[in-house]
C-alpha cells in the first residue's frame, strides 16, 4: 500500500506548462482573435464552449474504454479511471450546457433551442449523471464497478444513436432559427486560437484526470485500511 506523497516531477511540469498555456490562451481569446462580424465579442465563447464539449466527449470515451478493460481484465485501476473520467466529463458537459445558452441568448435570441447538438449534450448529461448515481447507490465496490462498466458501455454506444435520432427528429420539424455554422470558413487567426484552446483543454483534462485519479487511489487506500482494521479488531 504505497501512497504517492512525493510529487511526481512530470505532473508538476505538466501543471506548470498548463499554467503558461492557459495564460497564453487567455491572451489569444481576448486579444489576438479577431472579433467575429455578425456575432460580435460574444462569439469568443466559442473558444471555451467547443473545447469543453470536446473534453466531455474525450472523458466519456475514456469511461467507455476503461469500462471495457475493466470487464475484460478485472483490474481495479480501470474502475478508478472510469469513475474519475466520468466525474470530469459530467463537469465539462455541464459547462457546455451552461455556456451554450449564454451564447444562444444574444445570438439566437433564446436561452434554449432544441438543436441536435445541444439536445445531445443534455441527454449525455443525463446518462452520465445516472452513471454517477449508480455508483453511489450500490454498496459493494466490486459490484458497483461491474454495473457501472456495463452502464458506461451502454451510455457511450448510445451517443451516436441518440444523435442520429435527434437529427432526424429535427429535420422533420425544421427550426426557424438557423445559427451560423461554427466552423464555416474560419478566419486563420480564429483557427489558431481555436486549436490552441482545444490543446489547452486537452492538457487540462489530462492534468485533472491525473489529480482525480490520485484522489481515487487515496480513497481506496483509506477504505482498504479501514476494512483491514475492522477485520483485525
Amino acid at each position: 500500500m504505497s501512497l504517492e506523497k512525493t510529487k511526481n516531477p512530470w505532473v508538476t511540469l505538466l501543471g506548470a506548462t498548463l499554467f503558461i498555456a492557459m495564460s497564453v490562451n487567455l491572451y489569444l481569446i481576448f486579444q489576438f482573435a479577431p472579433t467575429e462580424r455578425s456575432m460580435g465579442h460574444v462569439q469568443r465563447i466559442f473558444y471555451f464552449h467547443v473545447p469543453s464539449a470536446w473534453v466531455a466527449f474525450l472523458a466519456f470515451g475514456v469511461v467507455f474504454v476503461a469500462s471495457i478493460l475493466y470487464l475484460w481484465k478485472r483490474d481495479r485501476k480501470y474502475n478508478m479511471v472510469a469513475n474519475s473520467a466520468a466525474e470530469i466529463g459530467v463537469m465539462f458537459a455541464t459547462l457546455v450546457l451552461v455556456t451554450g445558452p449564454i451564447w444562444a441568448r444574444p445570438v439566437w435570441n433564446t436561452w434554449w433551442e432544441w438543436t441536435p447538438r445541444l439536445t445531445l449534450f443534455l441527454i449525455l448529461w443525463f446518462i452520465y449523471i445516472a452513471y454517477l448515481m449508480l455508483r453511489q447507490f450500490v454498496d459493494n465496490e466490486e459490484r458497483s464497478a461491474r454495473f457501472c462498466a456495463v452502464f458506461g458501455i451502454f451510455g457511450f454506444v448510445d451517443v451516436p444513436i441518440v444523435y442520429m435520432s435527434i437529427r432526424l427528429w429535427r429535420d422533420i420539424h425544421p427550426s426557424p432559427v438557423i445559427a451560423g455554422g461554427e466552423s464555416s470558413g474560419m478566419h486563420p487567426d480564429i483557427r489558431v486560437t481555436f486549436f490552441f484552446s482545444l490543446f489547452v483543454f486537452t492538457l487540462l483534462f489530462i492534468f485533472m484526470l491525473i489529480q482525480r485519479l490520485r484522489l481515487e487511489k487515496s480513497v481506496v487506500a483509506v477504505s482498504d485500511l479501514k476494512k483491514e482494521a475492522a477485520l483485525a479488531a
Partner: peptide, 23 residues
C-alpha cells in the same frame, strides 16, 4: 441491486431509451 430500486430504473432507462422514444 441498488439502494433505491424503483427510482434507479427510470433514471438509468430513460436517457438510454430516448432514441426509441423519439422514433
Amino acid at each position: 441491486n441498488t439502494k433505491t430500486r424503483e427510482v434507479m430504473l427510470p433514471i438509468l432507462h430513460f436517457p438510454i431509451s430516448i432514441p426509441v422514444i423519439i422514433c
